[in-house]
């Protein structure tokens, strides 16, 4: 049982505030992804949970123990590093056995666990090799096996796939998901890759500027961004935003069209590029660039002077300069507060 609770954790590096009072609860056996651009504080948060950084304020709880004053070795965690951190002077076997030997497990148990995790990660034929004789992908497998062999309550992963090439990353992603689901540990996984986050996570915490902007299931984060930032960060291409002018009684003028919206003083209109379709009436989009991508066509256009993207069926002939009316799917329209940038429910 290892529920993780982060209560009011903040971190300052000199004048720079890396984390502003973050609160987050991660359920037992949950796969939580911390997602954000570089410098958003996601790695700092992970390192605070690991005990490699001390928080300036706040508490970290793992299970029913407060751990923020404990060194990493007493926290019941295992960590996988971005650059693998496989010990170069030890064989693969001894690398995986390293933590088990520190825990003074009997030799039979060490051998059993090393063999089991090595088989799990498909590296049983590499046990006698040294790190220098392995490829990047194999090293990452060793690093994951070493963490799994500890049978920890919590596994922390700091961009574990970012040093691998694209094809290998895809393969490892699927494998990691299976292995970690089976191991029944709580996982916290840091990445800047939204596809990785969407595909792996039970829940995603989107971070920006030292805050957690939204922590929710991947589909929720995608469909119902809690803030303008989430909509503009997640999705490729990202969400479109257009200014809206109130017409009273929850009706809004957007680029010459009228939509039903929230009954508030000010709002911004938002729609995902794939939630648009050409229609007789819609937002008049002046096409600038057309990129046929096979299954669909990416159209970059301008609506009321604002950049606007749409993902359309590829069988329709569109060329730059065309003006096409694009109708949004009504229940996919989202509204944001133009001042706070928060979603309006």
């Amino acid at each position: 049982m290892a529920e993780i609770a982060i209560k009011g954790v903040a971190k300052q590096f000199g004048d720079f505030t890396a984390l502003h009072s973050v609160d987050l609860t991660i359920a037992d056996q949950e796969f939580m992804v911390l997602l954000g651009a570089s410098g958003c504080g996601k790695t700092t948060l992970l390192r605070i949970i690991a005990g490699l950084e001390t928080p300036s304020q706040g508490e970290v709880w793992i299970g029913d123990r407060r751990v923020d004053h404990l060194p990493p070795r007493e926290r019941g965690i295992a960590m996988v590093f971005q650059n693998y951190a496989v010990f170069p002077h030890l064989t693969v076997f001894e690398n995986i056995a390293f933590g088990l030997r520190m825990a003074k497990l009997p030799q039979a148990e060490v051998t059993r666990r090393v063999t089991r995790t090595a088989e799990l990660m498909h590296i049983e034929q590499l046990l006698k090799r040294y790190s220098g004789e392995l490829s990047g992908g194999q090293r990452q497998r060793v690093a994951v096996a070493r963490a799994l062999a500890m049978e920890p309550d919590v596994i922390l992963m700091d961009e574990p796939l970012s040093n691998l090439d694209a094809l290998l990353r895809l393969e490892m992603r699927a494998e990691l998901k299976g292995v970690l689901a089976e191991s029944k540990t709580t996982t916290i996984y840091v990445t800047h890759d939204q596809v990785e986050a969407m595909s792996l996570a039970d829940r995603i915490s989107v971070m920006n500027g030292g805050y957690i902007v939204q922590a929710d299931r991947p589909t929720q984060v995608y469909r119902n961004p809690a803030a303008r930032f989430v909509g503009s960060f997640i999705g490729n291409p990202p969400m479109n935003f257009l200014p809206a002018k109130g017409a009273g009684d929850g009706r809004w003028h957007v680029a010459g069209q009228v939509f039903d919206g929230p009954k508030v003083a000010a709002a911004e209109f938002a729609i995902r590029p794939e939630d648009l379709h050409p229609s007789e009436h819609g937002l008049d989009a002046e096409v600038r660039v057309v990129e046929p991508l096979g299954p669909h066509t990416l159209v970059t256009a301008e609506v009321a002077g604002q950049p606007f993207r749409a993902v359309l069926e590829s069988d329709r002939a569109i060329s730059p300069g065309d003006v096409i009316p694009l109708a949004p799917i009504p229940d996919r329209i989202r509204w944001f507060d133009p001042d706070t940038h928060k979603a309006i429910q």
């Binding site: 070795r73 590093f81 971005q82 650059n83 951190a85 010990f87 170069p88 520190m102 825990a103």
Partner: peptide, 14 residues
């Protein structure tokens, strides 16, 4: 690399 030391700390080392 510092990560090697950090890895050792998370694996039970002082």
């Amino acid at each position: 690399p510092v990560e090697l030391e950090e890895a050792a700390w998370t694996l039970g080392c002082t």
